[in-house]
Design a protein around this nucleic acid. Structure first.
Lengths: 213, 213
DNA sequence: TCGCAACGATTGTTGAACAATCTGGGTCCG
DNA sequence: CGGACCCAGATTGTTCAACAATCGTTGCGA
């Protein structure tokens, strides 16, 4: 592993999102540095990056742990998603090349749906919405949305019922896409709003069912 | 200086925003660590945080320099601001306590206007818009907006004509606030849009006048 | 049982060291 | 004269060992 630094942060980010660590799990500097074969100092730099991304929580003198979104966090994430994704979509053009990326993600999701591969369905759904935000051609909005998506993945991981979390939303994404191409941005934004409200309700329902704070 | 870490990043952030370093200026690890009386490793952690905030640009093996927003950056910042601030305002309630904070910031700006203290006017204008975003009660939107504001300050610093950059906008902020309290969120959002378009045009005009990329 | 003091473990930070990489000149060749 | 190449100095990337500061816990005593 010669390329460290930001790349180390990327590696960790990937592992966390893939569920290599449980949400809330404590990440000890010494043991993780040993496991990743880097020095504590280098690992700490990566931690700072991840903390800024909201993927990891850093409490001074108490170390870092994998973030574990609370109910309040989930509500906030969806509020921000509604505002950003909705705002982007309302001003989007159906001719933007990003629409192709949306379609590709959607087809990947529909394909995985047949194979009941919920992990891929989840990833593809995420990619669909990332592509949606890319319609704005705004690096900063894309970055903000990426962070929201990463945090949300942690909430999904904590729930661990991928089917009910991802299956129903493939069709909803198709509705959004078709609304955009056939009926214009305003209608698409309405459908998106419906999607997000429904998705949020499902996550919060699962949270309360598992007695989560 | 016993409290380092994130606090060191805050210190640096403040210094950068206050213009202690010129936009684009190279920040050498060795000399800056010496100047701040911290070790290189500690300083590097702070750099990672600032880089995530967009205040500093980090190029591998070439070090970090104070960010120096390009024309494209300015355009993107304003696009994101329009979306976020506009979205927040459209769904805001004029009864939200944050409105008081907006009014306070506005009065601070108007006061400084009389004293021709453009630095304070600029800060107060920023605070007005930060308070505006706080109407959404969304930590994540607030954080995203904070980053945009910090980057924008660097653009302002690069321009160095604070009067033309800040003076005209105090009145516009009052218009936004009064529209919100008297005519409702929709009208306020229209005024805000006008504000942002005008402010962006002014920054870009100054940029092109100074032959900036 | 409760408060608390000492202990071990972990984080925060330092300084020195070395490898990897960049930068700026200078040289050589065409 | 101009450009490609290369070298040395400077800077960044990373490691390591050490110590101070802080946290959590454990066990002691009242």
């Amino acid at each position: 592993m010669s390329d460290h630094g930001t790349t180390l942060a990327d590696t960790l980010r990937e592992q966390i999102i893939q569920g290599a660590f449980a949400p809330g799990e404590r990440l000890s500097e010494a043991s993780l540095a040993d496991r990743l074969d880097v020095s504590r100092n280098t690992l700490r730099e990566a931690f700072r990056v991840l903390a800024q991304h909201g993927l990891v929580e850093h409490v001074p003198h108490r170390g870092v742990s994998v973030a574990s979104p609370t109910t309040a966090d989930v509500i906030d994430i969806y509020r921000a998603r509604r505002l950003i994704e909705g705002g982007v979509l309302r001003e989007a053009s159906s001719l933007h090349p990003g629409v192709t990326a949306m379609r590709a993600a959607l087809e990947r999701a529909e394909d995985a749906l047949g194979r009941a591969d919920w992990t891929v369905v989840g990833s593809a759904n995420m990619a669909f919405h990332a592509a949606l935000v890319s319609l704005a051609d705004s690096p900063r909005l894309t970055r903000a949305h990426d962070q929201l998506a990463a945090e949300l993945r942690l909430a999904f991981l904590a729930i661990d019922d991928p089917e009910s979390l991802h299956r129903p939303f493939v069709a909803k994404n198709r509705t959004v896409l078709e609304a955009l191409t056939d009926e214009g941005p305003a209608r698409a934004a309405e459908e998106l709003e419906r999607y997000l409200v429904d998705s949020e309700r499902r996550v919060l329902g699962a949270y309360s069912r598992m007695g989560r704070r």
